[in-house]
Design a binder for these strands. Sequence first.
DNA 1: AATATTTGTTCGTTTTTGGAACTATGGTAA
DNA 2: TTACCATAGTTCCAAAAACGAACAAATATT
Lengths: 141, 141
Amino acid sequence: MRLMEQKLAENIKYFRKLQNWTQQDLAKHLQISRSVVAKWESGTSVPDVKTLILLSKTFQVSIDHLVGMNTSRADLLKEFQKMYMSADQRQWDPDMMEIFDYLVKHPRMKEYFLEMIKLPLKKQKVVHRMFQTIIDEMERT
Amino acid sequence: MRLMEQKLAENIKYFRKLQNWTQQDLAKHLQISRSVVAKWESGTSVPDVKTLILLSKTFQVSIDHLVGMNTSRADLLKEFQKMYMSADQRQWDPDMMEIFDYLVKHPRMKEYFLEMIKLPLKKQKVVHRMFQTIIDEMERT
DNA sequence: AATATTTGTTCGTTTTTGGAACTATGGTAA
DNA sequence: TTACCATAGTTCCAAAAACGAACAAATATT
């Protein structure tokens, strides 16, 4: 993991110089001490996450790029799937897909489901239980 | 900047659940103590940059996404629709997204929902009605 | 209702950062 | 060359933060 620190160090320096800034300039921008910037760039220390985000904004570069992880900047689809679909596969989670289809076909059920989501948490739990009980019952008979 | 911590917290939890992992599972993966994960997810503390990168790799999500610096959900959705959805004109609306999120967070509910789908149609109808009744009831009281 | 699993919180300890001051390097002009 | 100035690297200490263990609370399952 030493590599990552190295890249981050290099990149901070790189983007700083891209702006024609001295360490002092950057430090002022971030409202921190100059010596801290020096330490980042020499790999002696690492900015915390909050500051990293600030750096990303300051330089207008993605955080992934900043830390040298822009390899996985792959396709949108993959990101999207990871973002919104159930995990394991590269494909859509078949189960979710099934539910999706089902709800499209049963809009009323969908509406009521949405209603449930809006309920206070405790009531949601109650609904879950009841639902569970109902399904169990239905499967048994 | 308080916002960022909140989003990061939510996202770590979200992606963890997407994998159907407990905090313990994630902790093991990262070779750290579970309580640390708990603290991240409750916003009590923040992972350092090294660990953040590890998380990004583990979940296969960009760091920017992880800290909530992503292009907005709506944008991503639009992009996705443009690229993959427009063909067969499926209705992919925000409500559906909400439901998906909800099911990710409540895997058990998802399972039971799937059970329902497998029931014979008549029973499904019955379940629908009961569900609606329950929701109506819950909303009234 | 009782048990087991999962999550949240508190505490003391350890690690790490951040800042001040000092040192080192590089360029420029006399 | 030497003196000077701006910039960058390093050391030390204080302060902040994360970490892990143990305990407490909440949630799910039977």
